[in-house]
Computed example of a mutant assay.
Amino acid sequence: MTRINILDPGASPLDYYGYELRRYREAAGLTQQQLGDIVNYTASLICQIETAKKLPTAQFSERVDAALGTGGALSRLVDLVMRSQLPAWFREVAELEARAREICLFQPQLVHGLLQTDAYARAVLGAVEDDDLNNRTAARLARQRVFQKVQPPVFWAVFGEAVLYHKVSGANVMREQLLKLLSFERNPRVNIQILPFDTGIHAGLLGSFDIFRFATDPTIVYSEDYETGHPTANPDAVESRSLRYDHLRAAALSIEDSAELIRSVMEDRYGEQQLA
């Protein structure tokens, strides 16, 4: 007789999700195979999610909620589950991203995680360690759900021009990534600017940072090193970083000129003729 793995729902958000999925499925009188046939996923995948071996996606949760009549219970758990998969020191930042009214960031070397494609994120996360890469990539991409909210944050990104040339993985990956940046070109709530090489000395030479602004809570600025992150609401730090950001935006290309540069680099460096 096959031994059924019973999860402890208090062990983690992922365990709780798996426990609830199994409970709802069994209450509906369905096997894993039957539920899989209804929602167009394999019984193996449902088993892996029920035993906390694989992360559920938002699409999976929506389909299962509809099939089992849960009233959206599983979909409401997805963000919590995904956030629990992030490094402990980064979970506070993910919460800031989810609550912020406005997000301003500066990145001189890499596309920020909130704008990364699956392939780009996978390459960055796997650069040093490839353990559990699928789940870590899914958790990073889940943060991008902030753009799907009824009222998403106003988002400003200033990238160093090196971001366009720093070849992460390969030409196909970079072309897809730059296409994603261009997909926001007509989105008034997502603004991307490029700080060109010839700017010379600029206000961001000390490294990347993020600024989170809220409707009522104090503004928080964030920076990180190799091992951890450093959020602070210290008024002096907030004022200093905000001033630096104003200077960076002023020195960067306009939103329109930035899009043209991104398009030009994509076609010249990662165009179809370069992919063979």
Rank of each mutant, 00 (worst) to 15 (best):
D236N: 07
T199G: 08
Y41V: 14
G126C: 10
N40I: 03
Q109F: 13
T216W: 10
R269W: 13
R143A: 10
I38L: 09
P108D: 09
G160T: 07
Q59I: 11
R145N: 11
R186A: 00
I4Y: 13
K180I: 09
Q107Y: 06
E260A: 05
A127E: 05
N134I: 09
L195A: 03
R101K: 15
E185S: 07
A138D: 12
H247A: 00
Y165T: 07
D131I: 03
R143C: 03
L7E: 03
R145C: 02
F155W: 13
H247Q: 06
C104W: 11
T51D: 12
L21I: 04
L206V: 11
A162Y: 02
E260W: 01
A250Y: 10
Q48S: 15
Q274H: 14
E256D: 08
T228A: 01
A52Q: 00
F184D: 07
R99V: 04
I46E: 07
S169N: 14
D15W: 10
E260I: 01
R143S: 05
A252I: 07
P108Q: 04
G229E: 00
T70G: 01
F197D: 11
E97M: 15
V168G: 05
F214A: 11
P56V: 06
F90M: 15
Q109M: 15
G207L: 10
R101P: 15
V124F: 00
F60A: 07
V111S: 02
I49V: 08
C47M: 07
Y222A: 01
Q274M: 14
L30V: 10
G160R: 02
T70M: 00
D132G: 00
S44N: 11
P152V: 08
E129K: 10
Q107I: 04
A66W: 01
D131M: 05
F197Q: 10
V154S: 13
Q273M: 15
G271C: 09
S258L: 05
Q274G: 12
A139N: 04
I49F: 09
L125Q: 08
V150Y: 00
T2G: 12
S208Q: 04
A66P: 06
R249W: 07
E129S: 12
G10T: 10
P152T: 10
S44G: 12
E62F: 04
Y165L: 08
C104D: 12
L261K: 06
Y245V: 09
R175W: 14
S169R: 00
V146H: 03
R269V: 15
R145V: 01
F147P: 09
L253C: 07
V158H: 01
E224Y: 02
Q85E: 14
D210P: 08
Y245K: 04
Q144K: 05
L14M: 15
L195Q: 06
S264P: 04
F155V: 06
N191C: 06
L253W: 08
A127N: 04
D210V: 02
E50M: 04
P152A: 05
I4G: 11
R249G: 01
R76Y: 13
